[in-house]
């Protein structure tokens, strides 16, 4: 029996959260990705880079940087839906009719500029690692989405199955160290996978930790590179205790690090984790953070996580403020050199 009209009217301005979760779980089960797309989108950035497939130290991107332009589009679409009268109904209908893929196809169309930015981040990370003297391999067939969103949303059954597949693939290449590139993938691989996949206990390091360990090998240009306000991501700062490393690296690259209100261990969330459930609330949190980063008085705002980058960027746009917001890897890469 369809829901009664009053029940629907009651939430006409709101998204039906369980429908969103169903779409998410369904996408991951079908394609391994949270949004529909060709799995090749995770690895296409590495074309033309001379990266070996095998090695003791391997790069596992976890896909967040590559997927973020798509997720961002999805969230914007949801926010529009939420603001409109059809939100709850449309998603519910989509879920019911199992036309999930067609709905998502309409949603996901990121701009060339956003896709290019993600590619630049990934290339910068690889170049930084190479400059630090790290022999990094990239087994393309093993790279995948880590499933972190499933874990965050409490979709444990789907997550567990997904984690098992990812762990099996990672174990098959027999690497000594897995290098991750974003805080969520770092955390989920290092602390969560071992709880869900029996016997999985690899050495996982964020590329930021690896760069800091090899900081003496990194050569940066001389001179003052400007004042950078650092936005610590929650997962690095509180879950993984990665706080000093980005500061060390920025300092060596010639930047003056400016601490905003609420930084380091007490850093503030960008609102990202609830953007697909409560887009308007998520945006308000992002705006609060964007304002306080702005008040810190730097020239550039540095993010260390694709979700933070995306959310803060949208928040500034919403506030009508043009701000130079850059991923840490881009800031470090542009200072490489004698």
């Amino acid at each position: 029996m369809p829901p009664s009209l009053p029940a629907l009217i009651g939430c006409r301005y709101l998204l039906d959260v369980r429908s969103i979760l169903r779409i998410l779980a369904d996408n991951i089960k079908r394609t391994g990705l949270p949004v529909p797309g060709d799995p090749g989108l995770l690895t296409s950035w590495s074309t033309g880079l001379d990266l070996p497939e095998k090695g003791d130290v391997i790069l596992y991107t976890g896909g967040l940087y590559q997927l973020l332009p798509y997720i961002e589009e999805f969230a914007e679409y949801l926010e529009k839906l939420e603001g409109g009268k059809a939100g709850g109904l449309l998603l519910k209908a989509a879920g019911k009719l199992r036309r999930l893929a067609s709905l998502s196809k309409i949603v996901v169309r990121p701009s060339r500029e956003r896709l290019e930015y993600s590619r630049q981040v990934l290339v910068s990370i690889v170049e930084l690692l190479k400059s630090a003297g790290v022999e990094i391999a990239y087994p393309r067939s093993v790279d995948s989405y880590s499933g972190v969103l499933l874990y965050d949303m409490g979709l444990d059954t789907v997550f567990k199955e997904h984690a098992r597949k990812v762990a099996e693939a990672l174990e098959s290449v027999g690497a000594k160290t897995i290098v991750t590139i974003d805080p969520h993938t770092t955390h989920v691989l290092r602390k969560v996978f071992p709880r869900y996949v029996e016997g999985f206990a690899p050495t996982v390091k964020s590329y930021i930790e690896v760069l800091a360990e090899n900081i003496d090998n990194l050569q940066f240009k001389q001179g003052d590179a400007g004042r950078v306000v650092i936005h610590d991501p929650c997962f690095y700062a509180r879950y993984e205790d990665i706080i000093d490393e980005p500061r060390l690296l920025l300092g060596k690259a010639g930047y003056t690090v400016v601490e905003p209100r609420r930084s380091g261990r007490m850093t503030y969330c960008c609102g990202g984790p609830i953007e697909s459930i409560a887009p308007r609330l998520s945006r308000r949190i992002a705006e609060t953070r964007a304002r306080e980063l702005d008040e810190a008085g730097g020239e550039i705002i540095a993010t260390l996580c694709p979700i933070c980058y995306s959310n803060l960027r949208r928040a500034y746009r919403g506030l009508g403020l043009e701000r130079d917001i850059q991923d840490l890897s881009i800031l470090l890469y542009r200072r490489l050199g004698p």
Binding site: C234, R238, Y239, M266, Y268, G272, P273, I274
Partner: peptide, 25 residues
Amino acid sequence: SMLCLGCARCDEVCPMEIPLSSLIR
């Protein structure tokens, strides 16, 4: 619980060391 960010600022300050964000998860 679904509106919790999981950001763990609460865990950081709780005087009774309650793992609030994990319990909410």
